[in-house]
Amino acid sequence: NPITQSQFVPLGEVLCCAISDMNTAQIVVTQESLLERLMKHYPGIAIPSEDILYTTLGTLIKERKIYHTGEGYFIVTP
């Protein structure tokens, strides 16, 4: 039996792509809307728990890849 190979993409990278897409579409990015986006637009991805999502978003903020305001999460533009 051949083994199907899937590509590994770090969660942080997927979140940045999803946040960027949602920002472009002017969709408010909350943790809930982000999870919905992942389920709908990234089939096959293991949906992270709320704790993992929260921690990963926190890491992306520390790395200055995203920022959070009262209006949601946004990509940091250079």
Rank of each mutant, 00 (worst) to 15 (best):
Y73I: 02
E32A: 11
L11F: 08
L11C: 02
P48N: 04
S33L: 04
R37F: 12
Q7V: 12
L38D: 00
Y54C: 14
I47L: 12
N1G: 05
A18K: 01
A46R: 10
Q7C: 14
D51L: 04
T4F: 10
F8V: 09
V14C: 05
D21N: 05
K65W: 03
F74N: 07
L38C: 03
T24N: 13
Q7D: 13
A18V: 13
T24R: 13
I3T: 13
K65L: 06
T69G: 07
G70M: 05
I19A: 00
V76R: 14
Y73R: 01
P2Q: 14
N1T: 03
T56Y: 07
A18M: 15
E63K: 13
G70L: 11
L15N: 03
V29C: 13
A25H: 11
T24H: 08
Y67W: 07
L15M: 07
C16P: 02
I27V: 09
S33N: 10
R64G: 14
Q26C: 08
F74V: 11
R37E: 06
D21C: 03
E13Y: 02
L35G: 07
I52E: 13
I19T: 01
G12H: 12
T56A: 08
V28A: 12
L57R: 00
I75D: 04
I45F: 09
H41T: 09
I66G: 00
V29G: 01
I47T: 08
T69P: 03
D51S: 10
V29K: 00
S33P: 00
M39H: 13
V14W: 09
P48E: 09
E13F: 03
Q5P: 10
C17Q: 15
G12N: 12
D21Q: 05
A18Y: 07
I52G: 08
V9P: 15
D21I: 05
I75G: 07
I75H: 07
E13R: 08
L57E: 00
G44K: 12
E63N: 07
E71N: 13
D21L: 02
V76N: 11
A25W: 03
I75N: 03
T56K: 05
S33G: 04
I3D: 15
T30C: 03
S6T: 15
L34P: 00
C16M: 15
A25L: 12
A18L: 15
D21H: 05
Y42Q: 05
K40W: 07
T56W: 05
G58E: 09
V28G: 06
I45K: 05
I3H: 08
E50L: 11
T56L: 09
G72R: 05
L53R: 02
L15K: 00
L34T: 00
M22T: 01
E63F: 03
H41A: 09
I75Q: 12
P78R: 08
C16A: 06
P48D: 05
G70F: 07
I75S: 12
T69A: 06
L34H: 00
I47C: 12
D51T: 08
L38K: 00
Y67V: 12
D51E: 10
E71D: 15
E13L: 03
E71P: 00
M39G: 12
V9A: 14
P43G: 06
I3N: 13
D21E: 09
V14G: 03
I45V: 12
P43E: 07
I27Y: 05
P43V: 08
E36A: 14
Y73Q: 03
P48T: 03
A46M: 09
T4H: 13
D51C: 05
N1L: 04
A18F: 09
A46S: 09
R64L: 03
G44Q: 14
L34I: 10
Y54N: 14
F74Y: 08
P43L: 03
P2M: 15
E71W: 04
K40P: 01
Q5R: 10
I3P: 13
T55Q: 14
L15T: 03
Y42R: 10
F8T: 07
P48K: 04
T30F: 00
L57A: 01
V29A: 11
P2T: 13
Q5N: 14
Q26S: 10
I47K: 10
L38S: 00
E32G: 07
G12F: 08
D51G: 10
R37Y: 12
I61Q: 08
I75F: 08
I47M: 14
E71C: 03
F74A: 11
Y42F: 08
N1E: 04
I66R: 00
P10S: 14
I61C: 10
L38T: 01
C17H: 10
V28P: 14
Y73M: 03
R64H: 13
R64A: 05
I61E: 11
V76K: 11
F74E: 13
A46E: 09
S49V: 03
G72S: 09
L35C: 06
I45H: 07
H68M: 12
L15P: 00
H68W: 15
Y54P: 05
V28I: 12
F74W: 10
M22R: 00
T24Q: 11
V28E: 13
S49A: 06
H68R: 11
T56G: 03
I66F: 00
F74Q: 14
Q5I: 08
I45T: 14
H41K: 10
N23E: 02
K62Q: 15
G70E: 13
N1I: 06
G72A: 07
T59Y: 08
C17Y: 08
R37P: 00
Y73E: 04
K40G: 11
T24W: 06
E63Y: 02
I19R: 00
L35W: 05
A18H: 04
L35Y: 15
T77H: 07
N1K: 05
I27Q: 08
R64F: 03
P2D: 04
E50W: 09
L11M: 04
T77E: 14
V14H: 10
G58T: 14
A18R: 02
D51R: 09
S49C: 07
L53K: 00
P2V: 03
P10W: 09
G12T: 13
P2F: 15
E50Q: 12
H68A: 11
V14F: 10
G12R: 15
T30P: 00
E36Q: 08
T77D: 10
P2E: 03
F8Q: 11
I52V: 13
F74I: 04
I19N: 00
T69H: 07
L53C: 04
L11I: 09
K40Q: 09
E32L: 03
L57K: 00
A46G: 08
T4P: 10
I75Y: 10
Q5F: 07
L35Q: 14
T30L: 00
R37L: 04
S6H: 14
